[in-house]
Structure formats: structure tokens, C-alpha cells
Design a protein around this nucleic acid. Structure first.
Ligand SMILES: [Zn+2]
Ligand SMILES: [Zn+2]
Length: 719
DNA sequence: AGCACGCCGACT
DNA sequence: GTCGGCGTGCTC
């Protein structure tokens, strides 16, 4: 009747080897079920692993099988997640042992018991209200604050001056009750939806009980967030959980507050900024179902969920969803898979959808929901492409004129430049010497304020040279302009207007940035000069003029994704202008105004810009129209890396798979390593992954593999 | 990835 | 004599 009991557990062990390891049960015990967390002997070490499945021993273990040492948690991970991770390991060609890192929070990856983190919030008990605290001034302070209602532990400690010890004593004495989360702000129904939003919402709700993937493509200010939050509310009402993924940079306190107030539920945050204890608490709350709303970055896509009801990916085009090392998965794509296996809807939102998602719409895998109207009075800004040829300054006369006009009318100006520092190149005007990084094939960026040269690829620094190291001339010139120089030039042109620089160098702490946003929010006329930090998220209602400087390098980049990224950046920055009630203006500065990409961009509609890009990818057999994986290798010398890839190419060639290379990476040398890559292309994603997986062991065993660092990247974003 | 073993240069 | 450099091999 029943199948004979299987004799070994196949265990995922956190080592970078392309296989699971077989273990016998703990002596005199049964095999722990799949999903169990176990402690196993491994070589001379003991490691925490996860039982993936049961089976019969195959592939002779050289020294025989060893038993599991201890079962730490039985069936901790459900089979749906185990299957998902297995699928990911095969598709993305990462070692199955990564399952341990992806599925367990750090606290559960170690064998020792974990000390429970302190409670996140407190409220006063009845006993606490009435207690006689005449001889405990600190406790009185705590009580005063809590009379108004519950507070987070952090807030309570800073405002009352009470230490952890005081709170612990009060809890033990029954004066305080610990809460896992502070209560959410009062629910707020939010604005009335317009017709487009209502029909998008209806479409999502119709799929509430089955799998369907939606691409919610809405221009800036069209109210995408409202649509998915209203859908989420219905899912919560049915007793299901909602997982929202957002890029690191977009996971702001404002977004979290908005989510909480719309959903009337505390949002459980999961991101890398949390302490280990906080991560564990969120993980457990998600697994138990207590956390009904979870908001997190990429890694949250693997959180266990008791009753998943909907997945949401905000800013789905954002590159931070792709993990860049270890298990190189794409959080958005995993969310779609997870929704499918849980039979629930997934909503991908973006004003500038990835070509991958647009392709999936074309293939009828996703359904597009378009929001083309800006909510409220906000209008599309007026666009202008400015020919920068002939202008010696980075700020062209037309830009300066427009800035003066907008500032004069009380507006704010945003200038976007994707490069921090003073100048990207420092050159000797006598002999042509340029300051290059010793360890990378790149120029060093000149940072004038700190008198140094910095490499933005490897972080190395050196002091600003006074003379040319080659010819001794003092005539060193800074070529081009980064944000630091732009700030200086703006201040020269507009001495009476405040200029704020927003980049990693100028914004030391988060508080500094927040304070600046508050100040800018007051609405005084000013100029903001900055990088990515400025383009993403954050409401800047006072901005009426936005400009993108120096788009030209993106027009001629070797990276085939460059035009797509350019369009996304430009649309994002343009979206900053005229969010308020005044009609905005947007300028794009270039020395190639006739470039077809810019003409297409200038029409101001991202989707019609993207359509021909997708067509080009198809013609060129590039992703997403075909499957691409890279085999990357790096070594201190170029030759071993090239050699390894050439050997691997010999193993990987096949009728269905085209191998190209070894090619040098776009940044050929980084941090002292020469970097090369082999392109592997195929019409079918599944065939490509299977093909590589099947040859992985042989690649591992290549002699030439021993002298290089190498890995496979399926669906790579960076070249 | 760790972690051991192993065999050669320069220290007390 | 031995401390330690990192090349090589192994992990159910
Ligand atoms: Zn010189
Ligand atoms: Zn460098």
C-alpha cells in the first residue's frame, strides 16, 4: 500500500557547490520531513541546513553517509516555497545550498538559540495607570507619555529618557504590556478613484481568487499606488496576506505610512537595514499569518506566508530587484512565480515598465492596465530638447534663461546629473595625461571639495595631484561636470538663490536628506542639483522646471539596455516637474539633438518610446525576445579568465545554444581583476537553464576553473 | 565558501 | 629547529 520509507534526506547546505547532500536520520529517529531545519556534520564543520526532499542514496558518497546531528525545527518551510526555491535554483543556476540563505533569516542560520528581540512597542496596562510611582520618576515619565496611547519602544526611550532596564522592570511588574507593532494610524479611505483607476481595480479584483499577472502602467501622478492599495484592502478583508515589494530607495517612511493608513493594518517591514532580531520577528510574523501586510525589498519575496492573497511589486522596472551576487534571482520574476503557485494575483506597477514586462504583455502572459491621466489638476510638463553644442558651460544659455524665469516666478528647479563629484576626468593640458585608476580600467573622478581623486568602481582614493605626474606641468584641467561642479556653476549664475546638492557625498545621513526635503517642501525658490537620489520617490511639489544634463553617453553606450534606462530616467525626472498645480517645463540637454532616440523621447510618452526599443531587441535577438545568460570570469591576469571561458565554451556549445565570446566586460578591469564573459543565448529560457545546469559539474571540474573566480548570471542586467 | 593538509622561505 | 605563506583537495 504505502511506498517503502525512503532512507536519506537530501539537505541544502550553505556552500557554493552544485548539489544537495544526503544524510541519514538522527539515530533511532525517522527522517525529518521536507522543510525541516537541521544541524548536519559537514566535513569538519557543523552547518544548519534545510531538508529539501527524501530519497535513496545515489552517487556514492566517498566516505559513506553521515547522520543528521539534530533536528532544529520540523517542517519549518512549506512545500510550496521549497518547490519555488528549487525552481529558482535550476532556472538561475545557483547552488541549491543558497536555499538556506534565501529562506531563513540570519538568526535561524546559526545553530545556537536566538535571544528574542525586545518588544517593538508598549502600552499601559490598567495596573500601570493606577500604580503608585511616587519613588520612580523615570517610570512616571514613561506613564505620562503612554497615557496618550501606545508608543514604539524607540520613541518611548528617547522621549522619556528611560533605559531598557526601566522598561523591562515595568513590563515584569505588569505595568506595561508589550506590543509587536505600534497601532496603525487611523484608516483613511483615500481619494475617490477616477474611471481609469476604477476599471483597473475592477480587473484586479476579478482575479482575486486565481493567478493573474497585471502590469499597472501609469504615468507619474496617475495614482497607481491607490489602485493596488484598494485591491489589497479587499484581499485583507478576505483574511489573506499581502506582500508588497519595493526598491530599497523607494521604501520610504512616507510610503509605509500611506500603506498603513489606506489598509488600516500595521505594515511589517523587511529590508537589509533591520537588525537580525527585527528580521526574525518579521519573518515569524509573516509565517504565522500575524503580519497581514508585509512591505519589503527583494529578499522579502522568499518570506514564508501562511495565507498569501496578493503580491505587489512597486516600480517593477527597478534594477535593484535583481540580486547581483550569490543567488542572482530577480525579485519581480520570483514574485510572479510565487503568485502563480499560490493561485493569487500579482500586480506589477511602474510609470516606465521594463521591456521584459512589456514583452510579457505582448505574449499575453501579463495583462496591461493603463493609467494615462494624471490625477487631480497636474499636467504633463512641456518638453524641450536643448542643443548644447557651442555652449562652453555645462549650463546652456537656454537652461539658464529657463531657470531664471522659473525662479523669478517663485518656482523650484531640479537639475539631474547622473554623476557625483566635480569632474569625471582630470587631464594634463600639456601632455594629455589623464588620472586613471590603478586597479580599474576607468578614469578617476575629481572631487574638488575634498581635494582628491576617487574611483567610483573600486573606491580607491588619492590626493589631488598638483602637477602632472608625467610631464610635471601644473596645468591640470577638470573635464566635464559632475554634481559638485554644477552646484558651483549654478551658485555663480544665481548668487541669491539657495542651491542644494543631493548626492551620496553631500547627504551624509538620512536625517540630513529628510531635513532638506522638509525645507524644500516649504516652497521657497531654490535649485536642486543631484543624482538618482533626487529622481526617485519623494514628492517635490514646488518644482516647476526639471532638466536632465548630458544624456549623450547613454546614447552611445555599449550596454544594450542603455536606451531603456535613459528613457526611464528621463521620464522619471520629467515627472518631477509640474507635480503641483502649475504646468511644468522639462529640458533635456544634448549635443546630439537629432538622435532618433531623443526625438522619440521628446514626444513625452514612455510606452511609445519603449515600443520600438522592444522591436529592436527582437531584431537583434536580445532579451527579452530571447534568453540570455552570462558566464563571467575574473582573475588577476586576463589570460586565465579568457582561457577558462574558452574551455567552458567548448563544453557549452550546442545546436540550440549560441555561445559568443569570451568578450571583455564593459569595465574590463575592476579592483585589480580582469573581467571577461561568455554570452549564452537561446530561444527558450528553460532550455538555456537546463543546458547550463547539465554542464555545470563539468565546468567546475575544469582545470582552468581553479585559477579564476566565476559564476553564471541568468537574465543579467549588468554587462 | 571554509577548513585542513602540505611543503618551502626567514625568523627566534 | 618552527612559524606561516597560500596551492590543492574535500565536503553527503
Ligand atoms: Zn602632463
Ligand atoms: Zn578603481
Amino acid at each position: 500500500m504505502s511506498a517503502p520509507p525512503q532512507t536519506v534526506a537530501r539537505v541544502a547546505v550553505p556552500v557554493p557547490l552544485p548539489r544537495l547532500f544526503d544524510y541519514l536520520p538522527v539515530p533511532d529517529q525517522q527522517l525529518p520531513p521536507p522543510g525541516s531545519r537541521v544541524l548536519v556534520p559537514f566535513g569538519r564543520r557543523r552547518l544548519v541546513g534545510l531538508v529539501i526532499e527524501h530519497g535513496e542514496p545515489e552517487g556514492q558518497a566517498p566516505k559513506g553517509l553521515r547522520p543528521i546531528e539534530r533536528v532544529l525545527d520540523e517542517a519549518l518551510i512549506d512545500t510550496e516555497l521549497l518547490e519555488l526555491i528549487g525552481w529558482c535554483a535550476r532556472y538561475y543556476v545557483f547552488p541549491p545550498g543558497e536555499a538556506v540563505n534565501l529562506l531563513l533569516p540570519g538568526a535561524l542560520r546559526r545553530s545556537r538559540e536566538f535571544r528574542a528581540p525586545p518588544p517593538a512597542a508598549f502600552e499601559l496596562t490598567e495596573a500601570g495607570r493606577q500604580a503608585d510611582l511616587a519613588r520612580a520618576p523615570r517610570q512616571v515619565e514613561v506613564r505620562e507619555l503612554l497615557l496618550e496611547g501606545p508608543l514604539t519602544r524607540e520613541e518611548l526611550m528617547t522621549r522619556s529618557g528611560a533605559g531598557a532596564e526601566v522598561l523591562r522592570r515595568m513590563s515584569e511588574g505588569g505595568l506595561l504590556r508589550s506590543l509587536e507593532r505600534p497601532p496603525p494610524p487611523p484608516p483613511n479611505a483615500g481619494p475617490r478613484l477616477n474611471a481609469e483607476q476604477r476599471s483597473a481595480l475592477a480587473a484586479v479584483l476579478r482575479a482575486r481568487r486565481r493567478f493573474e499577472a497585471f502590469l499597472l502602467a501609469g504615468v507619474t501622478g496617475s495614482g497607481k499606488t491607490e489602485v493596488y492599495l484598494q485591491a489589497a484592502r479587499r484581499v485583507l478583508a478576505a483574511g489573506r496576506q499581502v506582500l508588497i515589494l519595493a526598491p530599497e530607495i523607494g521604501l520610504t517612511p512616507q510610503l509605509v505610512r500611506r500603506i498603513e493608513s489606506r489598509l488600516g493594518e500595521p505594515a511589517y517591514l523587511y529590508h537589509s537595514g533591520l537588525s537580525e532580531g527585527e528580521r526574525l520577528a518579521c519573518w515569524q510574523a509573516a509565517r504565522s499569518g500575524r503580519a497581514r501586510v508585509v512591505v519589503g525589498t527583494r529578499s522579502a519575496v522568499f518570506l514564508p506566508l501562511a495565507r498569501p492573497g496578493m503580491f505587489i511589486v512597486d516600480e517593477e522596472h527597478d534594477a535593484s530587484f535583481k540580486q547581483g551576487d550569490g543567488a542572482r534571482y530577480h525579485g519581480r520574476d520570483v514574485a510572479v512565480l510565487r503568485a502563480r503557485s499560490a493561485r493569487v494575483p500579482v500586480v506589477l506597477g511602474s510609470a516606465t515598465p521594463s521591456l521584459e514586462s512589456l514583452f510579457n504583455v505582448e505574449q499575453d502572459r501579463y495583462r496591461m492596465l493603463r493609467l494615462s491621466q494624471r490625477a487631480g489638476e497636474a499636467r504633463q510638463p512641456r518638453w524641450r530638447i536643448v542643443d548644447q553644442r557651442g555652449s562652453r558651460s555645462s549650463l546652456s544659455p537656454e537652461l539658464v534663461e529657463a531657470m531664471g524665469r522659473h525662479l523669478g516666478e517663485g518656482g523650484q528647479v531640479l537639475i539631474y546629473r547622473n554623476r557625483r563629484g566635480y569632474a569625471p576626468v582630470l587631464m594634463c593640458s600639456e601632455c594629455g595625461w589623464q588620472a586613471d585608476c590603478q586597479r580599474c580600467s576607468a578614469h578617476m573622478t575629481f572631487h574638488q571639495a575634498v581635494h582628491s581623486l576617487q574611483c567610483h568602481h573600486c573606491g580607491s582614493q588619492r590626493p589631488e595631484p598638483r602637477r602632472c605626474p608625467d610631464c610635471g606641468s601644473p596645468a591640470l584641467v577638470a573635464l566635464g561636470a559632475g554634481t559638485e561642479r554644477l552646484e558651483e556653476e549654478v551658485a555663480e549664475r544665481f548668487p541669491d538663490v539657495p542651491v542644494h546638492r543631493v548626492d551620496r557625498d553631500a547627504m551624509g545621513g538620512k536625517h540630513q536628506f529628510r531635513r532638506l526635503l522638509e525645507r524644500v517642501g516649504q516652497g521657497e525658490p531654490c535649485v536642486l542639483v543631484g543624482t538618482q537620489m533626487l529622481a526617485k520617490g519623494h514628492h517635490l511639489p514646488g518644482v516647476t522646471l526639471a532638466a536632465v544634463l548630458d544624456v549623450d553617453q547613454a546614447l552611445f553606450s555599449a550596454d544594450f539596455r542603455s536606451p531603456e534606462r535613459l528613457g526611464q530616467t528621463v521620464a522619471q525626472v520629467a515627472g518631477r516637474a509640474g507635480r503641483g498645480d502649475r504646468g511644468g517645463e522639462f529640458l533635456l540637454l544634448t549635443r546630439h539633438p537629432e538622435h532618433p532616440l531623443l526625438e522619440s523621447l521628446g514626444r513625452g510618452d514612455y510606452l511609445s518610446y519603449a515600443a520600438p526599443l522592444l522591436e529592436e531587441r527582437r531584431q537583434a535577438r536580445l532579451p527579452p525576445a530571447s534568453a540570455l545568460a552570462l558566464l563571467r570570469a575574473e582573475a588577476h591576469d586576463a589570460q586565465p579568465a579568457r582561457r577558462f571561458l574558452a574551455d567552458a565554451a567548448g563544453l557549452l556549445g550546442g545546436r540550440e545554444i549560441e555561445t559568443i565570446g569570451p568578450l571583455p566586460a564593459i569595465l574590463t578591469r575592476r579592483s585589480g581583476y580582469w573581467r571577461f564573459q561568455l554570452w549564452l543565448q537561446c530561444d527558450s529560457r528553460a532550455v538555456l537553464s537546463n543546458h547550463i545546469s547539465a554542464r555545470l559539474a563539468a565546468i567546475h571540474e575544469l582545470k582552468s576553473a581553479r585559477r579564476v573566480r566565476w559564476h553564471v548570471d541568468v537574465d543579467p542586467l549588468d554587462l
